[in-house]
């Protein structure tokens, strides 16, 4: 899949349970692209996703959001490669995955800033929740920065829900599956609120009806 974003163009793409493995985005001057990867109820067992974003014009913005719930043997290997070749570029990446059973998720987040690409702001965050001790996560940021006036940040965290927090729910009579479901919704919230409304509604519906999954 290749997306060419024209000069001054703004584009939103939502990919639901996509099995597309190669995604290439080319951004011309003053363009803006927001891509959501929603892997909430994937059918595919394994997806190796390789997302390349090339900013070939100055002042372009990219947002990559990904959220997912992986269970059983599901596996997503997510590689993103953001190439800031021109000045004044912005990139924001936020990936939030919940894993249970023996599911696994890996994230390799590459950010490249070319020598002449000043005033870049690049942000990368990956947060994951493990619901089972057999679930696995590997996350690795890889920053290659050749310009000096750049703000680049990355952060990652992976862990289980806090047991004290879960106990607070139990003590109020709320069973663990319901508590986890509420906490997972809260975990996804910051991504869901960036989605176009029709997708928000769809996801809310899925949450409300899909009891066995979450």
């Amino acid at each position: 899949m290749e997306l060419i974003i024209n000069k001054n163009e703004t584009k939103n793409v939502v990919l639901l349970n996509s099995t597309e493995e190669q995604i290439r985005i080319v951004q011309n001057e003053e363009s803006s692209i927001c891509v959501h990867f929603i892997d909430l109820f994937p059918q595919a067992v394994q997806v190796s996703r390789n997302v390349v974003v090339e900013q070939v014009g100055k002042n372009s913005q990219v947002q990559l959001f990904a959220m997912g719930y992986l269970q059983q043997k599901q596996q997503i290997n997510f590689v993103s490669n953001v190439l800031h070749n021109c000045p004044w570029g912005h990139s924001e990446q936020l990936l939030k995955y919940v894993l249970t059973d023996t599911a696994s998720f890996s994230f390799l987040g590459k950010v490249y800033v070319a020598p002449n690409a000043q005033k870049i702001v690049a942000q990368q965050t990956n947060k994951n929740i493990l619901l089972s001790p057999q679930a696995k996560v590997q996350t690795q940021p890889q920053l290659e920065i050749y310009a000096d006036d750049v703000q680049a940040s990355h952060g990652a965290s992976t862990g289980a829900f806090d047991e004290n927090m879960l106990f607070y729910f139990l003590q109020r009579g709320i069973a663990r599956p319901t508590a986890e479901k509420m906490l997972i919704r809260a975990f996804y919230h910051e991504i869901i609120e960036t989605l176009p409304t029709e997708y928000q509604t769809e996801i809310e519906k899925e949450f409300a009806t899909n009891d066995n999954l979450l």
Binding site: R172, I174, M182, L183, A186, F187
Partner: peptide, 13 residues
């Protein structure tokens, strides 16, 4: 409990 409103929490309870 960040992200879980008192309203939703109490309703669940």
């Amino acid at each position: 409990i960040p992200g879980v409103s008192m309203n939703n929490f109490m309703l669940a309870a």
